[in-house]
């Protein structure tokens, strides 16, 4: 085993995702302590552009498995390919994004290799050869400090928007093609289609700014005023469970305990009272703004800025104010 850190690169539609640059930055911190290098595993079908992008980061090697069988994500295909990379690169630590793909793949591969696995971390560190992480548990009600206790390979998935994205620079990283026999016949679950639901917006888990609405929006139609604000800010639209259950917004936008956990730099909660189930999904946001008619709404206890008022008055005015900045 080396002292190296391997970053599993998530590639979607042929492009190298932002989370990968965040993982490289987390990996560089770890590598400084371990005395190793950061390398990237790039797996997929037609991924030459993503590989070239990856090589521009301050890493040592890009280990690539290019195979048509990996054109779409499959747990088994990607697990076999990543296993082949791990056997060749012999990393001490493998980092994944805490995403649908990263969480699915990391658990499968960790089980196969007998690795230690720490999911959904907001801090990753190395101490006396152990991986030491902080991760939200109980849907973010508390943090757990967790360490790896094994001698062998350690793995962690890191939540998006925590580490700053690494800059590109320096000489291009070495490209290593890794041989791996893959056959579609051995893969029991295959993606046949991918359908976009976000209509041009980033998923709430990836968004830097979120404008979210609660049941006070009163209808699906009224969510348009949040969308108008989101458009000006390049933001995504979130919703409370109450709004989703009332049918005003799709579940893909739900923030909270039975929805998604988000971590944007700005979260604007409009007409959301702040039930614990919602708070746990958004309270690590850097700055929280609450707009609510009820001065006693719990959301104000967790916000940085509050406006006691009717969202139907305030939100359009905010949209106008932000427009001035964006256009000015």
């Amino acid at each position: 085993m080396t002292n190296d850190i391997l970053v599993f690169a998530e590639i979607r539609d042929g492009s190298f995702k932002k989370i990968n640059a965040e993982l490289i930055s987390a990996g560089l911190n770890l590598a400084e302590k371990s005395g190793g290098a950061v390398n990237v595993a790039a797996l997929g079908g037609d991924i030459d552009a993503a590989i070239e992008d990856a090589r521009k980061y301050p890493i040592q090697k890009v280990y690539a498995v290019k195979n048509a069988v990996l054109a779409n994500y499959s747990t088994q295909g990607f697990a076999d390919a990543l296993e082949a990379v791990v056997k060749q690169a012999e990393p001490a630590i493998v980092l994944f994004g805490a995403t649908a793909m990263g969480k699915d793949l990391s658990a499968r591969v960790a089980a196969r290799l007998g690795a230690a696995l720490l999911t959904d971390c907001t801090e990753v560190d190395l101490e006396d050869g152990s991986l030491k992480v902080k991760r939200p548990v109980f849907s973010g009600k508390v943090y757990a400090n967790v360490v790896s206790t094994n001698d062998g390979i350690k793995m962690a998935s890191v939540r998006p928007n925590i580490y700053p994205a690494s800059d590109q620079g320096g000489d291009p990283a070495e490209l290593v093609d890794v041989a791996c026999d893959l056959s579609a016949d051995n893969i029991g679950a295959m993606v046949t289609a991918i359908e976009s639901t976000a209509a041009g917006r980033k998923d709430v888990t990836e968004a830097e700014i979120i404008v979210a609405g609660g049941r006070s929006l009163k209808s699906e139609e009224n969510f348009k005023i949040l969308e108008e604000l989101a458009d000006v800010l390049g933001a995504s639209v979130g919703a409370s469970r109450a709004a989703v259950d009332a049918g005003y917004a799709p579940h893909s936008q739900q923030v909270g305990q039975t929805g998604k956990v988000v971590n944007p730099k700005l979260y604007i909660a409009c007409g959301i009272s702040g039930a614990i189930q919602h708070l746990v999904g958004m309270r690590t946001s850097k700055v929280i703004v609450a707009i609510n008619k009820d001065a006693n709404a719990p959301i104000f206890q967790h916000a940085d800025y509050g406006i006691e008022g009717d969202l139907f008055d305030v939100v359009p005015l905010l949209t106008e104010e932000f427009k001035k900045i964006v256009e000015g």
Binding site: N72, Y73, T99, A100, M101, G188, A189, M190, V191, T192, A193, I194, E195, S196, T197, A198, R201, K202, D203, T205, E206, S252
Partner: peptide, 12 residues
């Protein structure tokens, strides 16, 4: 459900 979309998957 994945970020920003859905995957349709055939499973044996």
């Amino acid at each position: 459900r994945i970020e920003g979309g859905d995957e349709v998957v055939d499973i044996k």
